[in-house]
Design a protein around this nucleic acid. Sequence first.
DNA 1: GACGATCCAATACGTTTGTACTGCTATCTT
DNA 2: AAGATAGCAGTACAAACGTATTGGATCGTC
Lengths: 199, 199
Amino acid sequence: MVTPDPDASRRSIIGAVWELIAHDGIEGVTFRRVAERAQVSVGGIQHHYGTREALVRAACVAMIEDAHGEYEELPDEPLARLGHILLHAIPDSPRARFGASIWHAYLAKSVDDAEVGRLLADTKRGTEDECVRLIERAGPPPSTSGSLDARGTARRLLALADGLTVRVLVGDLSGSEAREVLESELDRLGAGTVLVPGP
Amino acid sequence: MVTPDPDASRRSIIGAVWELIAHDGIEGVTFRRVAERAQVSVGGIQHHYGTREALVRAACVAMIEDAHGEYEELPDEPLARLGHILLHAIPDSPRARFGASIWHAYLAKSVDDAEVGRLLADTKRGTEDECVRLIERAGPPPSTSGSLDARGTARRLLALADGLTVRVLVGDLSGSEAREVLESELDRLGAGTVLVPGP
DNA sequence: GACGATCCAATACGTTTGTACTGCTATCTT
DNA sequence: AAGATAGCAGTACAAACGTATTGGATCGTC
């Protein structure tokens, strides 16, 4: 039968994949387990995604698209958007931890799966570009030479956020400790604080 | 038979595990594949490590101990040591990429393996503590208030290095681009450059 | 020189896995 | 009305998996 809504099936399947990855890693993703969680048959999954690899990759692009969609919903204010990019991944809520776990599972997979690697690289690069735009739009800090390098600042901030995310994920830093670092850095940017050589 | 050197066996096994992880991820680690690569029998691996989980964890602690040992060999100069901590993980050499791949595989595993999580968290925390000591020993930058927070600086630097490592690993940043960011940050520290509020 | 302990090799077993294949139903096309 | 097609469910199978088990070779100890 052509069910009422095949898209609902697909979403349910992808959701099940996410849950399994977040809970058991990518190794935990098997056709039968996904089928059980998503309330579909193994054949159903095969029909939509064919192979296991394809299924895992589809769940990856779905995650990226979801994150992108969420970002688009944000109000068009540079500093707020920048804050979201830097802070949304810090896993101090169950939802954020869910996302971060999956993200890092794919990150590890990217070393032996070039396709996934390309996906992640493209999104990261895109995120950096967006950050550069946001920083430039946020307006240059009043009269200083140190900040003409928006790209450098974006790169630094992004890396900082990623590094802190890792530490919170692993559990040796609290979410608020990580936020503290990032927010102080953001304040500095907003207040036009800059780097100058010491005496 | 009590072979000439059982330790050589163990090292060979752990080495094989590393190679498999770096190439296929932790999923790729199976008794038979390890046995083949390490030139031992499946029974041999079982004898030394018992279960697969134990084997994977043993390879994790071995990696950490190796890294620690390498660090200890370094000359006792704060800034050089700090540079090593921050730069050694940037995967721009095959050796460094090897290590980073394995590290991130365990990182992903830490979300569903509390034991591995604890291991990684402890080492990261230890590394931060060591960085704090190094920064303090490097001498406080001349007469400024902004830098009395060695812990904050250490945390920032470390997160920065981790975030950049990820991006190089995934391939959207070159090793030299990452080094550039880190080295400029290190220079700032060495030259006693500090953060002051803007006008 | 018996004897336990250590270090492995070989094999066997039951389970889980990805995937191919078959069949059925409801919709769309013509 | 007829056929093609999309959307599943169910089953079957070979391969690969972790691990238990058995057996043998070598060493240290008494």
